[in-house]
Design a protein around this nucleic acid. Structure first.
Lengths: 130, 130
DNA sequence: ATTTATGCAAATCATTTGCACATAG
DNA sequence: CTATGTGCAAATGATTTGCATAAAT
């Protein structure tokens, strides 16, 4: 049976405050008020909380993974300049899980990740040119 | 100007032979006949060849990335048991790059990766149960 | 009391990088 | 010749793990 530790509560509440954050960002946030909490504990709790469906795990294709306070299915846009994650609302292609592949294969899910440049980074780029 | 080194030719030909392979698999394949070629060189050439559009880079969400001998746009299915990559033909959602997001954002591309269990691994699982 | 969780440090895995030497153009 | 590429080993970054101790139930 899973226990309701102080550390787990603090990690969950950090994810809910930060909305989209990496394990390291969550650890830094948590450690600010509770310096004793280790990064390993943050990782272990992020894993458990995602398995429980209390948060969701955003698997990036480069750099660190992110954790999301929202658990409803939706896709993300990641800025290739700063790494930040943004929600892509109003789009979820559930039917993609039923694509016809060789019988024998079992499709269990799919990931969609958009790449782009966020407003802030676009702005910084323009300034550099000038 | 880019040079046409022996090592680069060997790496390209390995990717074309293996079709879907990780840097490590490509290095092992290459090293079998040319033991002098280092893994760093394999990585550097895989990077250059993808930039040139001679091969493509499959960014995985866990474990090692793969390199693909094909360069036409298509998605992949990765087996969560063995990590192998399979093509998902006849499906490319180019229109996804035009999803409406906040103005200021620039969407430059998207990744779709299916997760599932391949025929071979499904088979192995069944045997374990019995 | 017993099992689950924690903190720490070390280990792992994929990939990148610095640097001295080699070689393609 | 000289810029680009190579091999080696060390560095990096994200994440995981072993182990002794702590604390939830």
């Amino acid at each position: 049976m899973q226990r309701n530790t102080f550390q787990r509560q603090v990690v969950l509440s950090a994810v809910q405050t930060l909305c989209h954050a990496t394990a390291d960002e969550i650890h830094r946030f948590v450690a600010a008020s509770h310096p004793g909490i280790s990064k390993a504990t943050v990782y272990r709790n992020l894993g458990l909380l995602s398995e429980n469906g209390q948060i969701s795990h955003i698997e990036a294709t480069s750099g660190a993974d992110y954790f999301d306070c929202t658990t409803s299915p939706h896709y993300h846009l990641q800025c290739t300049e700063c790494g930040k994650i943004f929600d892509v609302p109003f789009l979820y292609l559930g039917e993609l899980n039923h694509i016809p592949v060789d019988p024998g294969f079992t499709v269990t899910g799919h990931t969609v990740l958009f790449k782009g440049v966020c407003a802030l980074c676009n702005n910084n780029k323009e300034r550099k040119i000038k």
